[in-house]
Amino acid sequence: MDTSGEILLEAVDLHMAFGGVHALRGVSLRIRQGEIFSLIGPNGAGKTVCLNCISGLYRPRSGRIVYAGEDITRLRPHQRAARGIARTFQRIELFGGMTVLDNIRLGRHLHMRSGLLAAAIYAGPSAREEVAHREFIEREIIDLLEITPIRHKIVEMLPYGLQKRVELARALALNPRLILLDEPMAGLNLEEVEDMARFIVDINEEPRWRVNCLLAEHDMGVVMDLSHRVAVLNFGEKIAEGTPAEVQATPEVIQAYLGEAEGLYASRR
């Protein structure tokens, strides 16, 4: 793996506060092309806030976010999606009343063209577009994530583990360059964790996808196995960064996690 590659995303000195709570105090990150980059840290460390700043749901109080050479700090979430940043959520945020297929179709929103008039008429361009995207979804996404049997099911009726998978499918439909995964393993059983880890490696390594991943995760085992590089947050500050082996050996990290040692291994809620 080439780790000296070009930088895809750079967060510079992010500060964020909610009332008196300083959620981020000068966090800087650099994610290189091709990487699986993980953010770890105890509960409340600021991982989710950091992802929300990058996807545009929060606006940092100060700091800059540069993506593929462009300053995106002031862009709205949908504009960042249009530049190829997709995400999943710590607490699942699917469109509950829609089918799995429609959730994934929504992920194709930015790649479809039909306007009001064409869509109202349907026959012709709009129908062709629907079929073409349906084929793409079936071939590229549903097969890859092994969700063929559930594609016509209503999402909120599905078990938790499958919902997590559908969220990944929807994010992939965007055809992103960078995908932000907020605790994709939380709440999954052992088998599901293995599947999810495999999917993450697949989308990162398959030439068809080559998606960069920014992973916020509690599960140390998974993080250490999957990541090319890891950054550790504690109380809104970055206390270490490096390869998994380097990070594990850093005294500050051991200290930050010491009080939580049990929590660390029992953190699969």
């Binding site: 709205r76 949908h78 469109f95 829609m98 429609d102 929504l106 306007g115 009001l116």
Partner: peptide, 29 residues
């Protein structure tokens, strides 16, 4: 016309806003 809108891109975006506007934004709507 409305039924056609609802089964294509525009209608899905509307339903997505109803079901979860945060997720809709991050998916590019």
């Amino acid at each position: 016309a409305l039924a056609n809108l609802l089964r294509t891109r525009v209608g899905r975006a509307w339903v997505a806003i109803r079901d979860n506007d945060i997720a809709a934004q991050t998916m590019g709507v």
